[in-house]
Design a protein around this nucleic acid. Structure first.
Lengths: 364, 364
DNA sequence: GGTTGACATGACACCGGTGACATGACACTG
DNA sequence: CAGTGTCATGTCACCGGTGTCATGTCAACC
């Protein structure tokens, strides 16, 4: 690979002059600039990032760790929206800033984190993004105070800057839409109770009911574990059974995520219920692979992963640019939109319910 | 950040001796080694990758470009298995080798590739992986002969080393399973005809039929475009309509991918067909988010993305380690397994078909 | 006891850039 | 015409490591 010395010799100038052409930080005569530019093209010269970074003491690198949380030895099956969307959002912003993102996936093995952190330190990363696979509390203390950190999709107890989804608000907005469609008996098949998102979304669900003066009925709420365990379908089946055999069964079901809604479609139909005519179903995540492909297409709340990644990267870059900047004193909550699709229809007393076909449209 | 000089001063030795302790490339007395180690710990010293790499002329970096292919201005909805699994497979292997993977996502914008390549050259990457989002021919000539390259999920006309899925073999094995379950009228809802995978899988499907001496019936094959276009469901509906109204309708349907199968489940049931009792359905990809969560769980062929990523990384590392190594003269095809789940059952003349419940089991 | 060699360590240059400073040419001012 | 300022360019040191070579110490051997 050509060096700045090769270019200098080729153009008949000093290396420093080539450097000046590269950085445009000092006046260079037009003739010289042209000669240098031609030499660079002829030799295919690209300046060495490594050489620049030792001199400038700035690596221009941002580290990102993902997939670290599952404590299981084996990588678990993806349960919700893949974190990759967070990574993509972050990368788009980092790239704009001229810095480069160094991404490491732990493959679900927490014990790999120290090694990755060492690699990041060797590369002198200027900041660190830590991305969890779903919204949770994090006990892992990331060492290294000299590096700015931002957590995404998780939070800790020591006030590290954090970007999380607005789970409460998302479920609230979604449930309001269900209520607005005339439903009063709205079941909720939640994710695992231990999850942070479950608690927050349940709050949103309850707040929406309260706003509409609908009494909260605990018999319409059932938790499901859905980490791809073998008994998962049975669990959902049982929960639906309890809902449907009540004397006042629900007319709509909220599901903890889109994946769960997909299973619910199948089980409901297997039991003779048509979707959405006899039962409206809504999900969470707006995992487009599922929500758009399901028949009928799924009404769901967007989990704004891409926006969260972008917001986190933006915050991190600000903290790096201004070392004296104040840390945000509370987690940054990013809101998603409600995506109205065909799986939610208006409840009518008549058998032939009118379909709200808002396919593709999105509320503002 | 502490430097090797700080450590040397702290330990009362020369920088070179610290270097020797670090690299264990020359004898150091036990006492000195201990003093140096203590100094490194006390100062939190980690050697600078940049400084090492300019001296050694080896960056220890591998570049990976992904998401580059869609020529649309906007990022398209994910159509099949996300390439991220390829990236993860590659990363696991690269990490083992002690090198670091530099990942860049183009966000679907081809015009970003030159910029990314320049960044990679600045970082002096030792090799390059180019990952496409689905199996296709690639016209993009990646410049830079000094860098070893391996293509994943795509191939070009100039003999660049390539790793692709064994689409023909995968569909063949899957179709054989369907035939083995007693089905004779097997419909095939393919992906877009322009896709490389469509052609190859159709070959596999036909070969399996031939082996079983079943006549290929073109009226049982229909292409579907499924890039999340609004009319997608209608397209599938129409195709199914044609299948089901034949005088000898199919008893099983192969779908171009799992996402398509998900839509087929809904439409079939909407038309009053139970799955799998009245119609077996199989997919392709083994996108576990879908295949395991669908009710009933989906029989499908694994698209071995993770293994492909690992294989490509392994090949690239070999090419880097041995510059004289011969390039493979043909694309490397990676095979996936058939995953038998509840959506495929044995066809019987009696109404009550016996369910092959091989949930979780996998053929060898 | 002088020579030899293994061992432990240090001095120094160099990798590819860039910051600080110096230098030479030239135009402008009084 | 000497003094001054601007522009274009070069010299040199330095960033943080490592390869090469030199040096000093001490035990082993003839």
């Amino acid at each position: 690979m050509a060096t700045i010395y090769d270019v200098a010799k080729h153009a008949g100038v000093s290396p420093k002059t080539v450097s000046r052409v590269l950085n445009a930080d000092a006046p260079v005569s037009e003739a010289t600039r042209e000669a240098v530019t031609r030499a660079m093209d002829a030799l295919g010269y690209v300046p060495s990032h490594a050489a620049r970074s030792i001199k400038s003491q700035k690596s221009g690198l941002i580290g990102l760790i993902t997939g670290a949380i599952s404590n299981a030895g084996e990588a678990a099956a993806p349960a919700g929206l893949p974190e990759i969307y967070i990574v993509q959002g972050a990368q788009a912003v980092v790239e704009t800033s001229g810095k480069t993102l160094l991404i490491s996936d732990t493959g679900g093995r927490l014990d790999r984190v120290p090694g990755l952190l060492r690699t990041f330190r060797e590369h002198r990363v200027e900041g660190l993004l830590y991305v969890a696979d779903f919204h949770k509390r994090l006990d892992l203390a990331l060492p290294g105070d000299e590096v700015r950190k931002v957590l995404v999709n998780c939070h800790d107890e020591i006030g590290t800057p954090t970007v999380i989804p607005d789970d409460e608000g998302g479920q609230y907005a979604l449930t309001r839409k269900v209520i607005a469609a005339g439903h009063r008996r709205i079941a909720y098949l939640t994710l695992a109770p231990a999850q942070e998102a479950t608690r927050l979304r349940l709050q949103g669900y309850r707040r929406a009911l309260e706003d509409a003066e609908i009494t909260y009925d605990p018999t319409l709420v059932a938790p499901t574990d859905l980490f791809g365990t073998p008994g998962e379908h049975q669990l959902i089946w049982d929960a639906l059974e309890r809902f449907l055999t009540q004397h006042a069964p629900p007319t709509a079901i909220c599901c903890g995520n889109d994946r769960l809604a997909m299973a619910v479609y199948g089980i409901l139909r297997d039991r003779g219920f048509s979707v959405p005519e006899q039962m409206s179903v809504v999900g969470y995540d707006d995992h487009r692979l599922i929500s758009e492909a399901l028949y009928p297409a799924l009404t769901t709340a967007e989990l704004p992963y891409s926006a969260m990644g972008a917001r986190a990267a933006q915050l991190l870059l600000e903290l790096i640019a201004d070392p004296d900047a104040a840390l945000p004193d509370a987690p940054i909550r990013v809101s998603g939109q409600v995506r109205l699709r065909s799986s939610l229809i208006e409840r009518r007393e008549t058998v032939q319910a009118k379909i709200i076909d808002l396919k593709g449209r999105t509320e503002t």
